[in-house]
Simulated scan of single mutants.
Amino acid sequence: MRYLISIVVLTMSFTLHATELAPGQVWKYKTRQGEEASTLTILKVESYKDLGRVVHIRVDAIRMTNPLKGNVVTDVPHLPFKEGAVKRSITELLRKSPEIPAFQEGYDTWKNAYLTGKAGVFDTTVSATLTAMLGAKWETKK
């Protein structure tokens, strides 16, 4: 019986990580405590010679306080990740949506910064990245 359970768990794990990430997928992921209802949406997947496969995501149903304005942030419309970091984060595919949430402004800002060597992608899990954002030095837009 223990052997059978091990095979099922390994098969499920392999299937999850062999899943091709694609725009419109909405996933449950390993969330921060208190944000168990949070989801991530795949916005775009692309490949770069220096970064490998980059997965652009949106995160919904979080709770972070903006240290500059004091308002509560409940979503992040664009975050770029290495594919492996997203795959280490996701736990269950909830649905595939034909409509992709708007993200072009955030993507364009990231892309321009990346092309000038001023931005990269996250290689940590989604929850670790969100936690790190809380402790980051935030600056006002000039």
Rank of each mutant, 00 (worst) to 15 (best):
R63F: 12
R63D: 13
R63E: 15
R63H: 14
M64T: 03
M64Y: 01
M64Q: 08
M64N: 00
T65Y: 00
T65L: 02
N66I: 06
N66C: 14
L68R: 01
L68A: 02
K69P: 00
K69Q: 12
K69V: 09
G70T: 08
N71T: 08
V72M: 01
V73Q: 06
V73G: 01
V73W: 06
V73D: 07
T74Q: 06
D75N: 14
D75W: 07
D75V: 05
V76T: 13
V76I: 15
P77H: 09
P77D: 09
P77Q: 03
P77I: 04
P77A: 02
P77K: 01
P77C: 04
H78A: 05
L79C: 04
L79S: 06
L79H: 03
L79D: 01
E83F: 13
E83Y: 14
G84F: 06
A85Q: 09
A85P: 07
A85S: 09
V86W: 15
V86C: 14
V86T: 14
V86Q: 15
K87R: 15
K87Y: 11
K87M: 14
K87E: 12
K87N: 13
K87P: 12
S89F: 06
S89R: 09
I90F: 01
I90D: 00
I90K: 01
I90W: 07
T91K: 08
T91M: 03
E92M: 10
E92A: 11
L93N: 05
L93C: 08
L93M: 12
L93K: 13
L93P: 06
L94A: 00
L94Q: 10
L94V: 07
R95E: 11
R95F: 02
K96V: 15
K96D: 14
K96S: 15
K96C: 13
K96A: 15
S97C: 07
S97Q: 11
S97A: 10
S97V: 06
P98V: 07
P98R: 09
P98K: 07
E99R: 13
E99L: 12
I100E: 04
I100P: 05
P101V: 09
P101Y: 10
P101H: 09
P101Q: 10
A102Y: 14
F103V: 11
F103G: 14
F103Q: 12
Q104C: 04
E105L: 11
E105D: 13
G106Y: 05
Y107S: 02
Y107Q: 02
D108S: 11
T109R: 10
W110S: 06
W110K: 06
K111E: 03
K111L: 09
A113N: 11
A113F: 06
Y114H: 07
Y114P: 00
L115R: 12
T116P: 02
G117Y: 08
K118P: 06
G120N: 05
G120W: 03
G120P: 05
G120S: 08
V121Q: 00
V121S: 01
D123I: 04
D123H: 12
T124P: 00
T125Q: 10
V126K: 02
V126R: 03
V126D: 00
S127G: 12
S127T: 13
A128D: 15
T129G: 04
T129H: 13
T129M: 11
T129R: 12
T129L: 09
L130D: 11
L130W: 14
L130C: 00
T131E: 15
T131W: 08
A132R: 10
A132G: 15
A132E: 12
M133W: 08
L134F: 00
L134R: 14
L134N: 08
G135K: 11
G135Q: 10
A136F: 10
